[in-house]
Computed example of a mutant assay.
Amino acid sequence: MTAPAVTIPAALRLRGYRAVDLPLLSGDWLPGELLGLPVPGRPALADPASVPPPSPGRGLAEEVLVLPETAFVRFSELDWVHRRARLEIGLRPGAAAVAGPLLRAALAHAHRTLNLRRVYGWFTPGAAHPHDAHDAPGRAAAHPRGADDAHPHDPRGGERPSAAEELLRSAGLSPEADVPQALWLDGRPVDRQIWGVFRHD
Rank of each mutant, 00 (worst) to 15 (best):
D135W: 14
A46E: 15
V51D: 00
L67E: 03
A85C: 07
P93S: 07
A133E: 15
A44M: 12
A97I: 01
R192P: 02
G59H: 04
A136G: 06
P93E: 08
R139M: 13
E165M: 15
E33Y: 02
L116Q: 01
W29P: 00
S50E: 12
D135R: 09
A147L: 13
L167P: 00
T113S: 13
V119W: 02
L34Q: 00
G27Q: 05
P48D: 05
P48A: 11
G57P: 00
L185W: 14
D21R: 08
P161E: 06
A171V: 04
E63Q: 14
P54H: 08
L24I: 06
A96P: 03
A141W: 07
E88N: 11
R83W: 03
V190L: 10
L37G: 00
L103F: 04
A97L: 13
E69F: 10
L60V: 13
H200P: 07
P23N: 10
V39D: 03
P52G: 11
T70Y: 03
R13Q: 14
W184N: 10
L107W: 04
D132N: 15
R112Q: 14
R42E: 10
D149A: 15
F75N: 02
V197M: 14
V51C: 00
R199Q: 13
L167D: 01
R160A: 15
A164P: 02
G41F: 03
L30W: 03
H111E: 14
G158D: 05
L78I: 15
P175N: 09
P31N: 10
A11G: 03
A96G: 05
P23W: 09
P175C: 07
W195D: 01
P4K: 04
T70C: 10
